[in-house]
């Protein structure tokens, strides 16, 4: 599904959207960064509640397609700056991770 469609499904705020036509094909949920690096598939939507600067570093290294900050959490200014500098897609949604994933799956169907 295109990133723009995911943004609509999650009623998400576009904190940094580099490519709204980016094709999101997979997802990963989790907050421990090593799990993300060990398991998140390349190009995925990563659903998390973590908002510190290291989130961007991990997303870049693991080649995450879009960071989805859930639960209405706000990205720290350092994270926003880094995402802009490194061209990483970053969006925020008020939904919790479970609800966000349900909406992702519903939008994909």
């Amino acid at each position: 599904m295109k990133l723009s469609k995911l943004i609509d499904a999650l009623k998400a705020t576009k904190v940094n959207v580099v490519d709204k036509d980016f094709e999101v094909t997979k997802g990963y949920c989790g907050d421990f960064l090593s799990f993300v690096m060990g398991k998140a598939p390349s190009g995925c939507a990563w659903f998390t509640v973590m908002t510190n600067i290291n989130v961007c570093a991990v997303a870049t290294l693991a080649e995450v397609g879009v960071i989805v900050v859930c639960e209405g959490a706000k990205s720290t200014p350092e994270l926003v700056d880094k995402a802009k500098a490194q061209d990483v897609n970053l969006i925020e949604t008020k939904y919790d991770i479970f609800e966000a994933v349900k909406r992702y799956i519903a939008a994909e169907a």
Binding site: D31, F32, S34, F35, M37, G38, M50, N54, V55, V58
Partner: peptide, 15 residues
Amino acid sequence: ALGFGAGMGLPNMKK
């Protein structure tokens, strides 16, 4: 709290 310390660092390096 920063998201580190899952105990998966060395296992990931090995992987």
